[in-house]
Design a binder for these strands. Structure first.
Lengths: 223, 223
DNA sequence: GCGTTAGGTTAACACTGTTACATTAACGCC
DNA sequence: GGCGTTAATGTAACAGTGTTAACCTAACGC
């Protein structure tokens, strides 16, 4: 059994947390471009250069804000599965739904994490994967042991599941969902989040069947 | 049968195309932040303000570059399926692989398209979906008619397939794949693109089974 | 009391996108 | 030929950016 290991935020000075909060608000409101050192400074009541005493530069400041977002997302994931039976597909599905909900409710965090301004990909520990990835991985392994998912390379399955939800979220952040589903007609009067979750629900059946052990399908052609 | 409808690029002046090429190069080299009006100008041999005679501003310039990227991606997709039999799953898979290859070989285009700097999602016609989405949609419908995909809402299937490949690509652009697959060990000595394609190959089986018509699975529990 | 450090300041540099305005050349028109 | 108009470019400048250098001030250890 895995346990939530949420690292306590490093004990920070009042000024430091004030800067971080101001930065978070600016980031959430208008994205990376809206976060200027001078804007942060004036929110906190300091001069812009004072921030450099607490953070190496803008990049480092953004990184710290994002790191905080990771921790929140990790907690969000843990909460999503805590009441569900280990090894069940419900747990896997709940993680997917939590991922989507967190992404849509914390768009700016999410965008910045995957904005990929840096040409070099980050280390996994610096991405919401850290918490989320490992939780999902554990759930998948448990589901395999419970014969709810066919036995195969768990990393492949984890990345597959992650791709589905991550792809859905990022596509819907870039394109208007109602545009894509215009002909399906299932979308009016739903807000974006419910629409995305609804679509995720439709995906679940496709995913479940694909991951089913061969026994459940009456055949034996598993690889 | 659908035909490639690649819109000819609007006849542009020499200066205009020179600006666009310079902008494209800068964008590809260092992302949106590396594209400054002055840098573009000096590459073309003009003053920065001259660009404003051809483009409304930086945003418009970037948009035009991206638009050009869309057209290339559309052509890329068409080429990927032209020799494969309509209605086959091979066509669907080839589109997925083409999407991945194009994204990885044109990272900067791709990043910018999905960078989502604008808070409001774009219209579908302004996203690589335009070409790619419709091609994929048609291929899915044909595969349904050929009984290679279970009959259900095609838009759901299309978005599902798109999510899988798009998610995979964006995750691998943000995180180091070798990090994620460290324990699987299938990654050494492969470059990133081949690794991604290889993983996509592993996904295909999961996706194929999930989309199979009920008849092929020996059961009758389709919805 | 003195040195050191933490926490802050102002001034300045080298950039950025963008605008206002002036310039030059080419064209149609009478 | 001269005139007006327009296309295409230039210079100067503005307001904003991240960042650095240098300076100040209060608190602390010794």
């Amino acid at each position: 059994m895995i346990e939530p290991q949420i690292v306590e935020p490093d004990a920070a000075s009042e000024t430091e947390t004030a800067i971080l909060e101001a930065a978070r608000d600016l980031l959430a409101a208008g994205g990376r471009e809206a976060l200027s050192m001078r804007a942060v400074a004036s929110k906190v009541g300091l001069s812009a250069t004072a921030i450099y005493h607490w953070f190496e530069g803008k990049e480092a400041l953004v990184d710290r804000v994002v790191l905080h977002g990771f921790r929140r997302s990790e907690a969000y994931m843990w909460k999503a599965i805590e009441d569900l039976p280990p090894g069940s597909m419900d747990r896997v599905a709940a993680l997917g739904e939590a991922y989507i909900r967190f992404a849509l409710e914390n768009r700016e965090y999410f965008k910045i994490i995957f904005a990929i301004q840096t040409p070099v990909p980050r280390h996994i520990d610096d991405v919401p994967g850290q918490g989320g990835y490992r939780v999902l991985r554990q759930c998948v392994i448990e589901a395999m042991e419970a014969e709810n998912i066919r036995r195969t390379d768990p990393d492949v399955v984890v990345l597959y599941l992650w791709s589905v939800v991550h792809g859905l979220v990022t596509i819907f952040m870039a394109c208007d969902p109602k545009d894509l589903l215009a002909e399906t007609g299932c979308c009016d009067e739903l807000d974006e989040e419910e629409l995305t979750i609804g679509l995720f629900g439709r995906f679940r059946e496709l995913v479940r069947v694909g991951l089913e052990p061969a026994a459940a399908r009456g055949g034996g052609d598993d690889a």
